[in-house]
């Protein structure tokens, strides 16, 4: 993990940032991280990001000059209609894709390929089918010969996976698979968690439990989370800030500060303030969803 000029970078970044929120729980102990020697880094700076697929004549502009600054330890949800390029943005941050123009800076450094400090979870689980749950969860630390048995045990306990150590992924339910995937990611102790609609394949009940689990995990440790979703309620429930994206080509349309108290649980969705925020986000995304639908029809 690279460690450098964090202070300079933050000052620089703060000037750029337009919408800042003060997290109610961001007390002075932010620098103290359990399970890790590294300090609370994890800023993401997306600058003039443009991604074009295809070649001359048959180009598709997925993302167009997008700017977004995410602070260390912030929980940001990216809300957008399907096909708006939000996954593309995330793959650029993960290091799977190179931007066509612009750049993605993490802790002030340009992203150069995937890195264990940036953990990724997708909608379909990517647990290795040929490894047991235990082998999957300890995969990251094992690759660097730094397995902490106590920590692995804590994760199994925290994620409710005890007793499934020797099972293979396909033997688990969808919700369990996502918990195992989350455990695998946390075993690596990433600064940044990139989550691409991780719960959208789950039934409503399991989804709610997973959202609460994720909030718990995030309250416990200081990590930056970038969470992509097309679910307005989910976006507000989880986030410090909701970034609403336009239909393709993707840009930031709107940023909504979520000033609901933390720690939160799923009961917060009944509050007046939540409804107000939800209405605002729904209005913001409505036109974009319509445009995205027209685009999809035009292509069909």
């Amino acid at each position: 993990m690279s460690e450098h000029d964090t202070n300079d970078e933050r000052t620089d970044a703060d000037e750029r940032s337009t919408d800042r929120t003060d997290r109610p729980d961001s007390a002075g102990d932010e620098e103290v991280r359990s399970w890790t020697e590294s300090s609370g880094t994890g800023t993401v700076n997306i600058q003039d990001l443009t991604k074009v697929y295809g070649t001359d004549g048959d180009e598709l502009v997925a993302v167009d000059e997008m700017d977004l600054h995410i602070e260390a330890e912030e929980f940001v949800t990216v809300l957008g209609p399907s096909g708006c390029g939000k996954s593309t943005v995330m793959e650029c941050v993960a290091g799977y894709l190179d931007p066509t123009e612009g750049e993605v800076l993490v802790n002030g450094e340009p992203v150069d390929g995937p890195d264990p400090s940036r953990g990724v979870v997708f909608q379909e689980n990517r647990l290795f089918p040929w490894k047991t749950i235990n082998e999957n969860v300890r995969f990251g630390p094992q690759m660097r010969d730094s397995v902490d048995e106590g920590r692995i045990e804590t994760l199994f306990d925290q994620m409710g996976l005890e007793g499934f150590e020797e099972s293979y992924p396909h033997e688990l339910s969808g919700g369990m698979q996502q918990r195992a995937e989350l455990a695998r990611l946390l075993a690596n102790d990433p600064d940044i968690m990139l989550m691409d609609e991780p719960f959208s394949g789950l039934d409503a009940m399991t989804k709610e439990l997973m959202q609460e689990k994720l909030l718990d995990v995030w309250e416990d440790d200081d990590r930056t989370v970038v969470f992509i979703t097309h679910d307005v309620e989910e976006a507000i429930l989880l986030a410090d800030r909701v970034v609403v994206m336009t239909a393709r080509p993707g840009q930031v349309k709107d940023v909504i500060d979520v000033d609901l108290d933390r720690p939160r649980d799923t009961n917060v969705v009944t509050s007046d303030r939540f409804n107000e925020l939800q209405r605002r986000a729904s209005e913001s995304i409505h036109d974009e969803a319509e445009r995205a639908m027209e685009q999809a029809e035009g292509r069909a």
Partner: peptide, 25 residues
């Protein structure tokens, strides 16, 4: 490709990816 991506995001080198992902897969 997703499995190789997952492996590299978890910190596997390309030889580790060969041994733990490509060969068993």
């Amino acid at each position: 490709a997703e499995y190789s991506q997952a492996a590299s995001s978890l910190g596997a080198s390309s030889s580790q990816s060969l041994r733990h992902v490509v060969l068993p897969g």
